[in-house]
Amino acid sequence: MYNKKVLDYFRHPKNYGVIKNYSGRGKVGNPRCGDIMELHIKIGKDKRGREIIKDVKWQTFGCAAAIATSSMVTEMVKGKTLEEAKKISNQQVTKKLGGLPPIKTHCSILAEEALDSAIKDYEKRKKK
């Protein structure tokens, strides 16, 4: 059902955990459906003064696809500017994982939503 890469990311998840003094936090999903993803980001600045995702951590209650996409999306955004991170789509995450079974597409959407939600949370905090 899952390809080798998905299973590898599921088996050896990267970047899981929490950031205590996070800049933004996104939590999406619903335990009834069997998927909850929480994502923390820490924002910093690069040499050119652009805002970048300095650190990112996740926690997920969900199936292998949910865990693998959580791990992959955090790997993809780490070090990226906020503008770049905003452009990351669930299709890109799925593609990087070499594809997911069609019924698991919603897991990759969850990863994209968690990232979006964390970035929006940061932007809201910044305005305050």
Binding site: L7, F10, G34, C63, I67
Partner: peptide, 14 residues
């Protein structure tokens, strides 16, 4: 509790 079964099953499988 707090765990999703597919993950547990697949880890045990491995």
């Amino acid at each position: 509790e707090l765990i999703e079964g597919e993950g547990l099953m697949l880890h045990l499988d491995m």
